[in-house]
Design a binder for these strands. Structure first.
Length: 585
DNA sequence: GCCGTTTTCGGCCCGACTGTTTTCAGTCG
């Protein structure tokens, strides 16, 4: 783990302890925000401590946080953190993951019933010792039990590649219900986040009862968690919760904006609304008439804007901000200044530069791969099978590679309208050397260098290793730079800024691997690369035909990183791409 | 603890829902 990640965890922990000990909520929030900012930061904080002003210049990091960061970098520990951690049993942190159970209740259970972790909570529930505590009635205790079972069963957040098809299937089904007017998925799914907590679906209809009924009785529903007039929640056998919210059609935009989030983005928008003497909620943007007790919509106040998201942004004197940007990472001030990026779109992708055939571990013949690429409208497809060290993936020996190159060129000569590149996905060894000698690499039209083994290296070694690959004169693209697998494997934690600097210097592209298990580079890395002017490649790493569809997830990640088309080599014309590739030959 | 169109103090988003309660605390997004 990099020091940024370690520090982020420290601040998350401190926020949790403060919350559990009943500290001022804004102080809790400030710690959580500092943690979030540190987690997203691609610059190694240890390089910033010489000048504290560089730290406090970061939004959300003030004097106090800066001092603690410096303390951590200099001593490896933070006194405040140690003192806070001594105040509560760490097992309480696990309890905060139980839906419906918050810090106040946990504090009560800890102080008055000796609950310190999952095990003692389960025992207390079974023994009935919590029943006399204030505000803990039978229903709440029952809900806590059910939530604990759910947490035990579920694997936490769901990868977007699992959640999105589910959401689309549900929407297709609900569209059949009579009276439906509008329906969209919202939340982190609409923002294109790499993992999703639950699926939020928003609908307007003339027949709310029928729609709710259809939702609760869909195939795959295992539990109905609640079903009110406007909100129903279910759990699917896929282990994911889905919420349906039915809203008034004339306020659909306000509701969509609100339920898309992120929470922090919403807070920023509301602060802006207040400054403009307005008031924003999920029913619309209202004039602020000074009555803060009763919500404006309940008093019959007419909304200034509510029908579409665009209307609301416009009334706030902002252009529409794409959902992928709504993470409170500077998008509102960029919108205010008229410098929002013109985000890359899927239709602009014209080439696939990382794909496998049956020569290594893919399902395609060379011909089938070409066919697939043609059908997607690409002008170029690169055949990049694994190199010799990737034995588990049937990596090619030098002899096999040389034969493969001939076969690729021959297949390419037989088709028109598309360029076929003979390439390789070459392993980057732990020491940064590549899996083929330079004279072999020089025979290839394109080289994607990727780490596959030794993925638990220390950050400093990983940085050196990857920088060596990026700087290699025959390498075009650094493939899945960290090697992470979402929800399964952390991967390398190199100094991302160092990789980006090397990529800029050597004109090497950094890959956004679009496979939804990887999404590597991740969104925050992409953002840093975009800022520094590095080239990026969005590749699907296709092994089968359906893998080409995962391009969508790569695009979402790219958009979350504020990427514009011109900085992505896959959007370039065939001739521009070819020229770039040949500069390294 | 952070921050500044209310700028070094005094705010800090907003509403729904649930379950617990006779008026509201806690949680969620």
């Amino acid at each position: 783990m990099s020091s940024n990640a370690e520090l982020a965890k420290i601040f998350y922990d401190m926020a949790a302890v403060l919350e559990l000990t009943g500290a001022n909520a804004f102080r809790v929030n400030a710690h959580a925000k500092a943690a979030r900012v540190l987690k997203d930061l691609t610059t190694d904080v240890s390089t910033l401590v010489d000048d504290p002003k560089q730290l406090t210049a970061i939004d959300g990091i003030g004097k106090g946080t800066a001092e603690r960061i410096i303390e951590y970098v200099e001593t490896g520990t933070i006194a405040d953190h140690r003192q806070l951690m001594a105040k509560v049993p760490t097992g309480l942190f696990d309890l905060m993951q139980i839906p419906g159970l918050g810090p106040r209740t946990i504090k009560t259970m800890w102080e008055q019933a000796g609950v310190t972790n999952m095990t003692t909570l389960r025992a207390a529930l079974d023994a009935g010792t919590l029943e006399d505590l204030p505000r803990l009635g039978p229903k709440l205790l029952e809900n806590i039990k059910a939530s604990m079972d759910f947490v035990a069963k579920s694997s936490g957040r769901t990868r977007i590649g699992t959640a999105l098809p589910l959401a689309e299937a549900i929407i297709t089904q609900l569209k059949q219900v009579k009276g439906l007017k509008q329906i969209e998925y919202a939340g982190s799914l609409r923002r294109g986040a790499e993992t999703i907590g639950d699926i939020d679906i928003l609908a307007s209809t003339t027949q709310p009862k029928q729609l709710s009924e259809a939702f609760r009785t869909m195939p795959g529903v295992t539990d109905v968690l609640g079903s009110g007039e406007t909100k129903s929640s279910v759990r699917l056998d896929a282990g994911i919760q889905v919420d349906l919210r039915i809203v008034d059609d004339p306020a659909f935009g306000a509701a969509l904006l609100y339920f898309t989030g992120s929470k922090q983005h919403n807070v920023r928008l509301r602060e802006r609304a207040i400054r403009m003497k307005h008031r924003l909620n999920e029913y619309g943007l209202f004039p602020n008439d000074g009555d803060s007790k009763t919500p404006p919509q309940a008093r019959g106040v007419n909304a200034v804007a509510a029908k579409t998201e665009k209307d609301i942004f416009k009334a706030l004197k902002l252009p529409w901000i794409a959902p992928e940007l709504r993470e409170d990472r500077g998008e509102i001030s960029a919108a205010d200044d008229g410098v929002l990026p013109k985000l890359i779109e899927e239709s602009q992708i014209k080439s696939e530069l990382h794909a496998h055939t049956i020569a290594s571990d893919g399902n395609f013949t060379i011909e089938a791969l070409i066919e697939q690429a043609k059908s997607r409208g690409f002008h170029t497809i690169a055949v990049t099978d694994h190199s010799k060290s990737s034995a588990q993936a049937n990596g090619l020996s030098v002899d096999r590679l040389l034969e493969h190159i001939d076969a690729i060129h021959e297949a390419g000569s037989k088709v028109k309208g598309i360029t076929i590149l003979a390439g390789s996905e070459v392993d980057i060894h732990a020491d940064g050397s590549l899996d083929y000698e330079d004279d072999v690499l020089a025979k290839l039209d394109i080289v994607v260098a990727s780490p596959h083994a030794s993925l638990q290296q220390e950050p400093a070694k990983a940085t050196k290793r990857l920088v060596a690959a990026i700087s290699h004169p025959l390498v075009h693209i650094l493939g899945h730079p960290t090697g992470r697998i979402i929800n399964r494997r952390e991967g390398l934690s190199p100094d991302i800024d160092a990789l980006i600097a090397a990529a800029v210097e050597h004109d090497t592209a950094l890959e956004i691997n679009a496979n939804f298990m990887r999404l590597d580079l991740r969104d925050t890395h992409v953002r840093a690369a975009v800022k520094a002017g590095s080239l990026l490649a969005i590749n699907t790493d296709a092994h089968t035909a359906s893998d080409f569809d995962s391009l969508h997830y790569g695009i979402l990640t790219a958009r979350r990183g504020w990427l514009e088309a011109n900085q992505c080599v896959n959007t370039w014309s065939a001739s521009k791409l070819s020229k770039w590739l040949k500069r390294k030959r």
